[in-house]
Amino acid sequence: MTADFKLSCVLFDLDGTLVDTAPDLISCLNRALNIHGFDTVKPEIIKPFISYGAAAMINASQPLLDDRLKADILDTMLTHYQNNIAEHTVFFSGMVDTLAAIEAQGLKWGVVTNKRERFTNPLMAALKLTGRAACIVSGDTTANPKPHPEPMLAACKQANVEPRECVYIGDARHDITAGKNAQMRTLAALYGYINPGDAPETWGADALIESPDQISTWIASLSCH
């Protein structure tokens, strides 16, 4: 941590970092599997793949299916998800207080996700976060999604901050890579949807955090340097 780092904005990945969307995503996957004649899958099998998108979740649940059938299941799943965007989604424990603390310190915060706008924007609205976020960038907002730095830079432009004044928090390697590619500080969210094969300590994040509360602790530590 360099002494001249000045934090202006805290940026979050959405699924698995800011909010726990797993209950809704897994419910919609299982609904789609049932409709297409397949058995439901256990949440613990699918949860680690959520950060990689709905197609990865389907592939993990039914790896032997042909691409056309996987595409049909995906279409059904996403239609159900769009119509039930925040039925069971909740904030991770401590995140409500963390956001309030960030705002109380006069810091901006926002979201950079690979989730598409057709899902991100209704979800943020349902959680009453749209007006509070300084920026909302989805996977199709820019030409390139994470780990490319383009969405990160777009978020900075929306929030009117410099990348070097930001920290990005995510639960997947591509999140940390994206933040680093944009010259941001990065925190790896170990409480998110970590794949058993992942090794977050090798991602190059500035710190590993085990709960949203530790975000506030990390921010507080900046004033000690």
Score class of each variant (00 low, 15 high):
residue 127 L to A: 10
residue 185 R to C: 14
residue 151 P to I: 10
residue 181 N to E: 14
residue 67 D to P: 02
residue 159 A to R: 05
residue 222 L to I: 15
residue 75 D to H: 07
residue 134 A to C: 09
residue 209 I to C: 06
residue 187 L to S: 12
residue 64 L to W: 08
residue 89 T to R: 01
residue 53 G to M: 15
residue 103 E to R: 02
residue 34 N to V: 12
residue 96 V to G: 01
residue 174 H to C: 03
residue 126 A to Y: 14
residue 50 I to A: 01
residue 207 A to T: 00
residue 168 Y to K: 12
residue 83 N to P: 06
residue 182 A to F: 10
residue 26 I to D: 00
residue 73 I to W: 15
residue 173 R to L: 14
residue 30 N to I: 13
residue 105 Q to R: 05
residue 163 P to C: 14
residue 190 L to S: 04
residue 1 M to T: 09
residue 200 P to V: 06
residue 198 D to E: 05
residue 7 L to Q: 05
residue 80 H to K: 00
residue 141 T to M: 09
residue 172 A to C: 07
residue 47 K to Q: 06
residue 45 I to R: 06
residue 128 K to H: 13
residue 22 A to I: 03
residue 192 G to L: 09
residue 54 A to G: 03
residue 77 M to Q: 01
residue 82 Q to Y: 07
residue 66 D to K: 09
residue 61 S to Q: 04
residue 185 R to Y: 08
residue 81 Y to F: 10
residue 103 E to L: 03
residue 106 G to M: 01
residue 181 N to S: 08
residue 12 F to D: 07
residue 10 V to I: 10
residue 65 L to D: 02
residue 128 K to C: 11
residue 214 Q to R: 06
residue 81 Y to Q: 02
residue 101 A to H: 01
residue 105 Q to T: 03
residue 73 I to D: 07
residue 131 G to I: 06
residue 48 P to H: 02
residue 176 I to Y: 07
residue 118 R to D: 10
residue 134 A to S: 13
residue 188 A to T: 08
residue 223 S to H: 03
residue 171 D to G: 12
residue 10 V to G: 11
residue 132 R to S: 12
residue 112 V to C: 01
residue 143 A to F: 06
residue 80 H to D: 08
residue 46 I to C: 03
residue 45 I to L: 01
residue 32 A to L: 11
residue 94 G to M: 05
residue 102 I to P: 04
residue 26 I to Q: 00
residue 61 S to K: 01
residue 151 P to Y: 09
residue 139 G to V: 08
residue 21 T to R: 02
residue 62 Q to R: 14
residue 136 I to F: 02
residue 137 V to N: 02
residue 132 R to Y: 15
residue 71 A to I: 02
residue 10 V to W: 03
residue 129 L to W: 12
residue 8 S to R: 13
residue 109 W to C: 02
